[in-house]
Amino acid sequence: MTGQLEIDVTATLPGFTLELAERIPLAGITVITGPSGGGKTTLLRVIAGLEPAVRGTIRFDGADWSGLAPHRRGIGFVFQDVRLFPHMDVAANLAYGARRRGAGREMVAAVIEALDLGPLLHRAPQTLSGGEARRVALGRALAARPRLLVMDEPLTGLDRARKERLQPYIARAVADFGVPLLYVTHGEGEITYLADRVLTIAGGRAAGWQPPAPRLTGRVRAAGEGWIELERADAVLRVEGQGRVGEIWAIPLGRDLSLSTRDPGATSGVAVLEGRILGPEPGEGAPETRPHGLETGGERLTIPASWVPAPLRGVEGGGPVWLSLARIRARPLASA
């Protein structure tokens, strides 16, 4: 059974109070989002023990963390402003936490391998590019073998291409090292690609949970240098990424997907899948505004009404659709 992070705290900062009682599953990637100044960073700092004025309780998988010093919590924290130690090279930064937590050389070596850090080992942090520095910061946190990884807007300040290049490393790290991740962001692309669940925080309070973006899944049946083949009931998709045979991967659906009521034939995209709109889900509001069911390749997804082709929107019983994928960004799912 999956453990939980049980939080019931009030944290008082100058001019701001965070008041929150939530249970966060300790598995996969939990994205925490919400407006700036809403308390996302404060929540991470409270969990890590970095905020002094906190009342209440924090329990990690049953263990009481209230009042426990930060260095005893075993949290890997990737800060928004990176904070690599400037007086140490990359290798020493990676070894810093590993040595203190007794993680051993094998762990450091595994992290270097997983995040492609080999070429950077003898560089000074000041000479790294923004993207490289973020990768090292993630590696430094992972190498200390954390029980929980938290990342505070770790891709802020990078251009979109760099963000998209780094996201697979994050997903890969969570899948490979089996460490649950709390990930603060307000980037739509990051939420779509990374989230297994989403918690919104605003005004110092929790404002509700959302499910992850609709996603297709597949099993890796073949893998090579930088590519995998994902096997689904209805198709085999060749996808960019580093994976191993047998892993389950997700293809989160977002802007790269378009639906049509006719077979589009050949497209400029990478794949066309057949499916069926199942009609609006039960719930409140007009049928054409409610989320709709979508069945494809034996999987049943729930998608927003705005994704449904107009003629099928709100129609009970739905009808056949074709899913065109302009490109596929897939990621490994953490095994539960």
Binding site: H71, F77, F79, F85, H87, Y96, A141
Partner: peptide, 25 residues
Amino acid sequence: TGYMEAAATLGATRLDAFRSVALPL
């Protein structure tokens, strides 16, 4: 305090972080 916080999350006690991070910096 930023580097000291980073050191703490990496398992360093306050004294250890002072010696290995604050003092060299």
